[in-house]
Amino acid sequence: MPLPPPDQPREPLHTRTIRVDSFAREDGQWDLEAELVDVKAYDFPTRHGQIKQAGSPIHHMHLRVTINDQFTITAAVADYDAAPYGEHCMQIAPDYRDLVGMNLLRNFRQAVKDRYARTAGCTHMSELAFVLPTVAVQTMANRRRKEQEQVKAGGRPKRPFQLEGCHALSLDSEVVREYYPEWYAAPINPSLRTDR
């Protein structure tokens, strides 16, 4: 369901688009390719007296990480098509190879903050990296579903990793009761549940 219409007339100013595509590789690993684009809805003068046209990217950056089946990054590459300070911004791209060795499911966002804090990185490239963990989980969803089916054939399956990952998937939720009944735990105090 879309947001309700605004209650006041308004003028568009800025659009940020983030897109991530994932790919299964022939070597058994996965590539996540992330892209961030920022555009303004109006023309404005640059520091050099030129006019930046509406819709022309201010930021346009790319980040590819390769992950193994444990969600550990085995390769990383960053690149820029547009940045507000040109080559001064772009020279940080090679430093994002330091993502290698980080695990997307083990404190990843904090590890990125620790490694690329303030002047050690690019704010926008690091922000782009922050979307990778949830995309990686979605990338592996079909594989994990097949693993669960194989385990189920041989006995009790392993608890699905997504349970307890958000309010809708808490073990005492209606969603878990309906879709994952073998993992459902009745609430200790039902009056405290907010989804009923």
Results as ranks from 00 to 15, higher is better:
Pro2His: 05
Leu3Cys: 08
Pro4Ala: 15
Pro5Phe: 09
Pro6Thr: 10
Pro6Val: 11
Asp7Cys: 06
Asp7Gln: 15
Gln8Tyr: 15
Arg10Ser: 14
Arg10Phe: 13
Glu11Lys: 15
Pro12Trp: 02
Leu13Ser: 14
Thr15Asn: 12
Thr15Gly: 10
Arg16Cys: 06
Thr17Phe: 09
Ile18Gln: 05
Asp21Thr: 09
Phe23Ser: 11
Ala24Met: 08
Glu26Trp: 04
Asp27Val: 04
Asp27Glu: 09
Asp31Met: 12
Asp31Cys: 03
Ala34Leu: 04
Ala34Ile: 02
Glu35Leu: 05
Leu36Arg: 11
Leu36Asp: 15
Asp38Arg: 09
Tyr42Glu: 07
Tyr42Ala: 11
Asp43Glu: 04
Phe44Leu: 10
Thr46Met: 07
Arg47Met: 04
Lys52Tyr: 03
Gly55Pro: 01
Gly55Glu: 03
Gly55Trp: 02
Gly55Val: 02
Ser56Thr: 11
His60Ile: 01
His60Cys: 06
Leu63Thr: 03
Arg64Met: 11
Arg64Glu: 06
Ile73Trp: 10
Ile73Ser: 08
Ala76Val: 08
Val77Ala: 12
Val77Leu: 14
Ala78Ser: 11
Tyr80Gln: 09
Asp81Val: 06
Ala82Arg: 06
Ala82Ser: 08
Ala82Met: 10
Ala83Cys: 10
Tyr85Lys: 02
Tyr85Leu: 09
Glu87Met: 13
His88Arg: 10
Asp95Val: 14
Asp95Tyr: 07
Tyr96Thr: 15
Arg97Glu: 15
Asp98Tyr: 07
Gly101Trp: 01
Asn103Phe: 06
Leu105Lys: 03
Asn107Glu: 03
Asn107Pro: 02
Arg109Leu: 00
Arg109Pro: 03
Ala111Trp: 01
Lys113Phe: 05
Lys113His: 15
Asp114His: 04
Asp114Ile: 04
Arg115Asn: 02
Tyr116Arg: 03
Arg118Asn: 07
Thr119Ala: 11
Gly121Lys: 02
Cys122Pro: 00
Thr123Val: 10
His124Glu: 14
His124Ala: 05
Met125Lys: 01
Met125Leu: 15
Glu127Trp: 00
Phe130Met: 12
Val131Phe: 02
Val135His: 04
Ala136Asp: 11
Ala136Met: 12
Val137Asn: 06
Gln138Met: 05
Thr139Leu: 02
Met140Pro: 00
Asn142Trp: 13
Asn142Asp: 13
Arg143Leu: 14
Glu147His: 07
Glu149Arg: 13
Gln150Met: 10
Lys152Tyr: 00
Ala153Cys: 10
Gly154Met: 14
Arg156Glu: 08
Arg156Ile: 14
Lys158His: 07
Lys158Arg: 12
Lys158Ala: 15
Arg159Ile: 14
Phe161Val: 07
Gln162Asn: 01
Leu163Arg: 02
Gly165Val: 00
Leu171His: 02
Val176Tyr: 00
Arg177Leu: 12
Tyr179Val: 11
Tyr180Ser: 08
Tyr180Phe: 10
Glu182Arg: 01
Glu182Val: 01
Trp183Pro: 02
Tyr184Leu: 04
Ala186Met: 04
Pro190Ala: 10
Leu192Arg: 12
Leu192Phe: 05
Thr194Ile: 15
Asp195Tyr: 01
Arg196Val: 14
